[in-house]
C-alpha cells in the first residue's frame, strides 16, 4: 500500500514539474517521473494481487518510454536550433 502512495506522490511531483516549469528539459524529466510512478504503481498492484500482468505492462512502458525519450530529446534539440531557447512558453504560434 505504501508503494501505491509513493507512486501517487511521485506522479504528483512529475505533473507539477510539467505544469509549472518553463524549461523543456525539466518538464521532460517530469514526464519521465510520471511514467515511472505509473510503473511503480503497476508493479505494486502486481505484487498485491499476485498476478504478473502488471509487471509485464511495466516492461512495455519502459520500452515505450525509451523510444519517447529519443523523440522528445530530438524535438527539444530541434526547438533549440530554431529558436535558441528551450522555454515552453516561447512557441505559441498555434494560438487561435
Amino acid at each position: 500500500m505504501n508503494y501505491v502512495i509513493l507512486a501517487a506522490i511521485l506522479f504528483s511531483i512529475g505533473s507539477a514539474a510539467v505544469l509549472l516549469r518553463r524549461n523543456a528539459i525539466v518538464a521532460f524529466m517530469g514526464v519521465e517521473l510520471m511514467l515511472n510512478a505509473a510503473n511503480l504503481a503497476l508493479v505494486a498492484f502486481s505484487r498485491m494481487f499476485g498476478e504478473l500482468d502488471g509487471q509485464i505492462m511495466a516492461f512495455f512502458v519502459m520500452v515505450v518510454a525509451a523510444a519517447e525519450v529519443v523523440v522528445g530529446l530530438a524535438i527539444i534539440i530541434a526547438l533549440f536550433r530554431a529558436r535558441q531557447t528551450i522555454s515552453l512558453d516561447e512557441p505559441a504560434e498555434l494560438k487561435g
Binding site: 505533473s15 510539467v18 505544469l19 509549472l20 518553463r22 518538464a27 515552453l88 512558453d89 512557441p91 505559441a92 504560434e93 498555434l94 494560438k95 487561435g96
Partner: peptide, 17 residues
C-alpha cells in the same frame, strides 16, 4: 471557443490533467 486555443503547451497539459 477560439480563446481556449492559446498556443501554450503547459495550459494544454493542465487541461489534460
Amino acid at each position: 471557443s477560439r480563446k481556449f486555443q492559446n498556443g501554450q503547451v503547459r495550459s494544454y497539459a493542465l487541461t489534460m490533467l
